[in-house]
Design a binder for these strands. Structure first.
Lengths: 231, 231
DNA sequence: CGCACGCTTGATGCTGCTCAATTTGTGTGG
DNA sequence: CCACACAAATTGAGCAGCATCAAGCGTGCG
């Protein structure tokens, strides 16, 4: 593992305040693995053996029921996933697959639970991380139940957008079909929702989306910090 | 506060393993209040000052966006709510109102955060409770995105049902309009969804719902422990 | 008794899904 | 560099699910 990767992981809220020995022990016990795109890392209903940290690439968390499937979230570097399952020693509620070539650090669940008892700063970081995850999930439910598909899309764009002067820009790092599933709609519907947003200051150029009139899109999206704030 | 109420609260997963002094300090610092039905206890976007414990009655958690509103969950005795906001010292994401005459113990957020640092068993109970809440929210998202309204209803009924021999029974403790909002549909639609379930072994008698053919309802509902298990 | 409120039922329309066809984009092998 | 193959994205038509609007019950309470 490269020193700069370890350093990046160290900056995560989850590890930032941990004691040095706690951190190095967790990293030492972990396996850093490389995966090609499209590989399934974990499956719903398996027991949680590892805490995963995405060091490089993109990982999609998704869930299934019967023959339906939906994307739950996209994890970028440097982010962790399935902390909750690891802590309560239960099965995963979500599956994970790589969207790109990725590097993932896998830390044995056992080690994480041990560290809980011994490092107070780490423990309160875990509490913070869980509370954050919980609140993010609540916001997700609110978005699903209170907004239409086009509104979810508009707000997602505004959250992702990188402003450059009057304009803003979103560059998709994954397929639109994944985005559609993340937003809770079909690919066809996403296409149409994007068309709808043309009337609200949005221009689509393939995987690149320009927000030419932020005011117009904001009026349509009607964002709320209680749904859209990152944490 | 009656001793039996304190004893009931003590049995909560959140408090069960706490040290005696932690528990008594939290309860001592709390206010036990009685409320009539329909009273708003907390509002979205206010800062989290108290951890709430429902001692008696029913409390509805709901959320709004613009002029839309949705029920997020129903809290029964003995249950807590908004632990996450209290711990991360942030605003509430949800509002709460009483559905019935209720008794609520309100514990100052400050005290809860203090206890975190001093009582290891309490801390790990908090971690467990947060992880549970997180996982419940993830399941809620899965249900919303992967199921139709009628399927959510069928699974909700199966979860609530009290079996008595071949039959099972659900007695609604609150209005159907609240249930419809909890399930993410309109009252009209809930009515129709209930009618649909008549074809799958369900009989409606006002606020009382009989499941006469559990097998048939199970086949329709297709429940999954990864969505429907209580925790 | 009658009013109010919650629930149900019907009619209608919108939102979003499914299925199918076409266009666009991308990577591969000649 | 081009031609081809394949996958993704878009577009259109038809349909299911769900919402809205508008009456009609039924029950409980003043």
């Amino acid at each position: 593992m490269r020193p700069e990767d370890a350093a990046a992981i160290r900056t995560l809220p989850l590890f930032r305040d941990a004691r040095e020995e706690t951190f190095s022990e967790l990293v030492r016990a972990g396996f850093l693995q490389r995966f090609p795109p499209g590989v399934t890392l974990i499956n719903e209903n398996e027991t949680a053996d590892f805490l995963h940290v995405v060091v490089e690439g993109l990982v999609e968390l998704f869930a299934t029921a019967g023959d339906r499937e939906t994307t739950m979230s996209i994890v970028e570097p440097v982010g962790t996933f399935i902390l909750a399952a690891v802590l309560s020693d239960q099965v995963y509620l979500q599956s994970a697959r790589t969207l790109e070539k990725a590097q993932v650090l896998m830390i044995p669940a056992e080690k994480v639970r041990e560290a809980l008892g011994t490092d107070l700063a780490f423990t309160s970081a875990v509490v913070g991380e869980l509370a954050r995850g919980y609140r993010r999930a609540i916001k997700e439910v609110k978005g699903q139940k209170l907004r239409t598909g086009a509104e979810r899309l508009a707000n997602w764009l505004l959250r992702q957008a990188v402003s450059s002067g009057a304009e803003a820009r979103v560059k998709l790092r994954f397929e639109k079909r994944v985005l559609s599933s993340l937003l809770g709609m079909t690919p066809e519907n996403l296409s149409r929702a994007l068309s709808t947003l043309k009337q609200h200051g949005v221009v689509i150029r393939g995987p690149e989306i320009l927000i030419q009139d932020q005011g117009a899109l904001l009026r349509f999206a009607n964002p709320s910090p209680l749904i859209d704030a990152p944490e």
